[in-house]
Design a protein around this nucleic acid. Structure first.
Lengths: 195, 195, 195, 195
DNA sequence: TATGAATGAGCCTTCATTCAT
DNA sequence: TATGAATGAAGGCTCATTCAT
């Protein structure tokens, strides 16, 4: 990695949690400047404009989230354990894996009507999440862990939606109560499909 | 209603969909000015500052959503029908009841780490939504429609989360596919509790 | 006094100390509005614009100061006593006769390069003050109280300047120490002219 | 001096006479912009806000006045000559050493009830002026020029007050007549203390 | 006479961005 | 590559003033 790439990466890492916390519109280049202790001109050496930096920060947030998730999932030995690991990973919105909470919720909601590029990034990430879940379930079915009649895609969608919705509800209330209800429900749903 | 109150209301009505679409930070007073065709000074006759106007717009969005929902719910004769009405009301995120989509998702996500007042407004609105659902289910149980062992509060949380999560997923993908899966799942869950 | 004149007078009385304290430029019509609890429109019924009101407030401040001074002077039986009364009247800048301090200093300094009308008002008031002092001294000479060779006009100028200068110094330091020195010096100067 | 410091200094130099003439409240950043031919944004590169710039301008005005005064004083060989030099320096308010007149009078009066920071700056400058005068007199006494019983501190206060008061009076009247009277009186007072 | 809604110019300030060094 | 000075558009907001009621 060249010096320039190093600096670029450094900026992204500092910027990512700020964008995820304050939102893209409410984050100024000065905020990033302050966080990185770099000069204003330096930012524009590495990023053509704020949008490019914001996109990089969005990507970085989602990549970090994804790799942290993978680490948890790799612990689970069976498909069932992996599903539980997935759920547990998102079970604490008050102390979430990423500063600022879920980037899909944060960036997706902000980008919805204003930033098609970020919106598409979020869309893809959501689809990947669903596919990951679906493949876990399907592997579980193939391995004889789960009821073969279980609709993997549908449940993945439901699980994903519940975690995102629960995330919002818990962050608004300031506690994990709602998320706990959701986690219990999901765990019950899954255990019922165990053969 | 005095002339002033009329203008104030007029401004709120014009501002509400803009805030819900662009977000609070990304909406400028000039945007509102343009939408209302009023002078900048005039806005400040009726609102002390942008925050006050934004709060009023948040309130208005949630009130309109709530009253539109009530209208749908009033059609449902049984508790079961009312639950279906509730779900159907939120079943089309691509063409949502409110311009800009769900204000709880939009304002809640933006306010999360930056605006405690709006955050609390969203929190209260979510709680009201849960309570409404819970009371419908409990009435259904009392009326002998639903299994008395059904955990009304827990299901309300799950239903609410699924609709919010599905809303996000569908808006990101640009179609209602995910939401349709969620609606079907919810309808099935409910029908299973029918006695 | 008609109702209108009454209101006009009321506004002036409320406005005068505000202008004398904050200055003309820094006092807004809203400040006056708040102090009078009158509507914005009402102010413009009685005063064509802010300048007219400011001028009226300047006049009022100087008139009130003058009449308060006259009241003190009328206590002094001899010319010497009257001079002492004059000095004593201005001897406490920390708790001055007028809220905001000396209007000649306040308005004169502000108007100097920006408001020729107010500047001229202050100029006239200063001249009146000098003349008043001169006439007291001259009466004292005529009455055989003071040395006939005393230059009344010159001493009036000196006395006036010392009080204004002392006023500034004491207000800046937050105590009357400098003014006390000045008062003592002036009293000594006067007593030396006693026959 | 870096480029930035140079520009900063340039802005201060252009701003100082404007603030001293119009007052702080009545001087807008646009006024400074116009005088410097710099962009509005550029001002905020060098000064956090208008207050900071105003303070710098106040300081600059007082520093320039002080150094001009020092230059005059350095001409005087005896203490008596230095006192005359001091008085002469302030003897022409119609054509004062600083554009806008005496900054102690101007800023002190405006800041009195509104700007404690500037007020304290003026307070300190006044005290320095008194101390300078006192030390000159005391040196004169030590050198056997002046009557050892002369109260140096008291006369410094009186002299200072008379010059400030005379400054106001002369600027209001548009001529130096009053100041001339004061200068004569002061010169006579001093010469009487000559041994 | 009194009101307060309405106006638009102007205020201070922040913004994303450019450019000479 | 890195800097920070410079820019001008746009931000939120206040101002003195007008006008229909």
């Amino acid at each position: 990695m060249t010096k320039g790439e190093e600096t670029r990466q450094f900026i992204i890492e500092k910027a990512a949690p700020i964008f995820n916390t304050k939102g893209i519109a409410a984050t100024s280049m000065s905020d990033i400047m302050e966080a990185t202790k770099l000069s204003k001109g330096s930012m524009y050496v590495h990023f053509d404009n704020k949008d490019v930096l914001a996109c990089a920060a969005v990507d970085h947030n989602m990549k970090v989230l994804s790799s942290k998730l993978q680490m948890e999932l790799s612990q689970g030995k069976s498909a069932e354990e992996q599903l539980y690991a997935y759920i547990d990973f998102f079970s604490n919105p008050i102390n979430p894996p990423l500063t600022g909470g879920c980037p899909l919720l944060n960036f997706g909601t902000e980008a919805d009507d204003t930033n098609p590029i970020v919106k598409e990034k979020v869309n893809i990430a959501i689809k990947r999440g669903q596919q990951l879940l679906t493949s876990i379930i399907e592997k579980g079915i193939a391995d004889g862990e789960f009821d073969p009649k279980w609709d993997a895609a549908a449940f993945s969608t439901v699980l994903f939606a519940m975690l995102e919705g629960g995330h919002l509800m818990s962050r608004m209330s300031g506690n994990n109560d709602n998320m706990k209800t959701i986690v219990q429900t999901l765990r019950k749903n899954i255990s019922e499909k165990r053969i």
